[in-house]
């Protein structure tokens, strides 16, 4: 063997060793690092061997191809045009028939397309416009417990659901306790906003207590908690819906109705 062939031989031996190493690593515990290093090493060694082969063993030579075969010769192209024109003329002479057939095929195409598309899903429904919050629903945690007005400290935040729809992804809301007196219509300083961002529907889950802002971590839309969820900054185009609530005689926080407007991102049918 020449020195160059010896180098290539070394690469091949190492590639085989790497492959063997992979099998060994696999059967002795399956360490990802050992498996990876042996397999990647085997591939790299095969690559090196192939490179050596390409540049040292295979004779370097150049070939020249002609760009040919297209476009066809002018006479062929003319014959094609003529034949197409002729055939077209013969076949499509009854113009009314052609139009009728085209229309029928269109309807047939629709017939084939309608079931597989229409059966895919339901009509757009009420869930886009209304959540499951009803008048009198207690603000309920995911574990089923009601939130009472004396339970949260100022600046505390809770995730709440309607008591009859715990875990409903459209109804989920953020309860925040503000300093009392900061907002006139917040019972005991409590305010509730929809969790769904009005921009792209991500959970508006960051409360910046110093600024009294709710922020969406996806695209940084920011909503003013003291101003009915008005957009402060970011790409959201409308305010975060606020849920009207009261504290009942027993101190349980309850909704007085649904969100006044649809929650979540905008869509065509949204007024």
């Amino acid at each position: 063997m020449t020195p160059k062939e010896r180098v290539i031989a070394l690469f091949i031996v190492l590639a085989a060793a790497g492959s063997g190493g992979f099998i060994a690593a696999y059967f002795t515990g399956g360490s990802r690092l050992l498996e990876g290093v042996s397999l990647a090493g085997a591939c790299a060694m095969f690559g090196a061997a192939a490179l050596g082969w390409a540049f040292w063993i295979v004779p370097q030579e150049h070939v020249v191809d002609e760009v040919e075969g297209y476009p066809s010769q002018t006479i062929e192209r003319m014959k094609q045009t003529n034949e197409l024109t002729e055939v077209q003329h013969l076949v499509t002479r009854p113009v009314a028939l052609v139009r009728l057939l085209a229309a029928a095929l269109g309807v047939f195409g629709l017939a084939l397309l309608v079931p597989p598309i229409r059966s895919l899903g339901t009509d757009p429904d009420e869930t886009l416009f209304h959540t499951k919050w009803r008048k009198g629903d207690a603000l309920t945690r995911i574990d089923g417990s009601f939130v009472r007005a004396d339970q949260l400290n100022v600046n505390a935040v809770e995730t709440v659901f309607p008591e009859h729809a715990i875990g409903d992804p459209m109804s989920v809301a953020t309860l925040i306790r503000l300093r009392r007196g900061l907002l006139a219509d917040a019972p005991d300083g409590y305010v509730v906003y929809s969790r769904l961002c009005t921009h792209a529907g991500c959970p508006v889950a960051l409360y910046r207590k110093a600024a009294h802002e709710l922020m969406c971590p996806c695209h940084q839309s920011t909503f003013n908690v003291l101003d009915d969820g008005a957009v402060v900054s970011g790409p959201a185009d409308h305010a975060l819906p606020r849920l009207p609530i009261v504290a009942d005689a027993g101190g349980v926080l309850r909704a007085t109705g649904d969100f006044p407007v649809p929650v979540g991102p905008g869509f065509w049918e949204r007024p």
Binding site: L33, A40, C43, F46, G47, A50
Partner: peptide, 16 residues
């Protein structure tokens, strides 16, 4: 050789 090198790179990335 390129194929083997591509394999080596993605396997190494996947491992490390």
């Amino acid at each position: 050789a390129l194929f083997a090198m591509v394999l080596a790179v993605v396997v190494a990335l996947g491992a490390f």
